[in-house]
Amino acid sequence: MFTLRTAKWLGVSACAALLAAGCAATQRSGEVPQSAYAGGKLNLGTAPTTAEIAHYFSYPADGRGLPSGSGSYAQGEKVYQTKCLACHGDKLQGTPLGDRLIGGRGTLVNNSPAKAPVKTVESYWPYATSVFDYVKRAMPFNAPGSLSDDEAYAVVAYILGEANIVAKNEVINAGTLARVQMPNRNGFVSPDPRPDVP
């Protein structure tokens, strides 16, 4: 007959078997939850189509995967004036609604609580690819993700031109974007040096 005592015994026995098999070795701390499952692949999910994958994007600093298309400073100025200026200001100086985009070089080295460093695309962002990725991804705020690739390249050309990072006659495209040398390219360290206090 199946009794409570039997159940308890079975439980103990199962634990012992798991220990013998080394399954409990994954447990780092008694309270860190671990999956009860230790088997192989489950064959869940489906294979997405190439088109489904192509719907998404993100562009690392080497520029791989950047789309075709291009934009110039002049084209970007027009896009900026109609779609960006309301939040980022007519001189890219920022407003309460949108970040300042240019200026601030020389303000990052600072140990005074009275002086706030100016972190802009010009002074702080280490990669131009991040600017394109973000503009295409989430800008403008009132119509996120609505710019065409040409428009996004153009806006980047305009911002980088105003920031005196690239010449105003330079066209920004998949080939040129990743080659842009941002002023603060070497301004970051990783890995994390913490703990940094005794």
């Binding site: 562009y59 600093a61 600072n110 702080y124 990669y127 991040s130 990725d133 301004g187």
Partner: peptide, 19 residues
């Protein structure tokens, strides 16, 4: 990927200008 949130934000700027 050097996204906006891991470069321009969520980075810790030290007094020496290095984040």
């Amino acid at each position: 990927y050097q996204t906006r949130e891991e470069t321009s934000k969520y980075t810790d700027l030290m007094a020496n200008g290095i984040a």
